[in-house]
C-alpha cells in the first residue's frame, strides 16, 4: 500500500491529472492551507474515496462525486490534495 500512498511533496497523482470515470482516495492534504479547510467542509477528508465525474472544457473545473454529493473544484485548488488512484472493483 505504501507505494501508492505518496506524500504532499511527492504525490503519486494529482487530482487535476485524473480522467473522467476514474476513482481515487485522498491520501493527504496540506495541514496549513486555508483552501483545504473549505475542502474539508465539503467532505473531502483524508481517506475518503471519490470518482471523477466531469471535466470542464479548456482546463476549467473538475467535478467529483464524494460522499454522495457532486462538487467542482479548480485544478489549482485540487493540487493541494494528494490522492492515490483506485482500481475499479
Amino acid at each position: 500500500m505504501a507505494a501508492s500512498t505518496g506524500t504532499l511533496d511527492n504525490p503519486v497523482l494529482r487530482l487535476s491529472e485524473m480522467t473522467v470515470g476514474s476513482r481515487g482516495r485522498v491520501t493527504a492534504m496540506s495541514p496549513t492551507c486555508k483552501l483545504c479547510l473549505r475542502l474539508l467542509d465539503y467532505g473531502l477528508t483524508p481517506g475518503v474515496e471519490f470518482t471523477v465525474t466531469k471535466l470542464a472544457p479548456f482546463g476549467g473545473p473538475i467535478e467529483i462525486e464524494v460522499r454522495g454529493t457532486r462538487i467542482c473544484l479548480r485544478s489549482c485548488e485540487a493540487d493541494y490534495v494528494c490522492i492515490a488512484p483506485l482500481n475499479e472493483p
Partner: peptide, 11 residues
C-alpha cells in the same frame, strides 16, 4: 475580504 476558493456544488 478573505479570498475564498471557488468550490461549486452540482445539484
Amino acid at each position: 475580504a478573505t479570498k475564498v476558493p471557488f468550490i461549486l456544488e452540482m445539484p
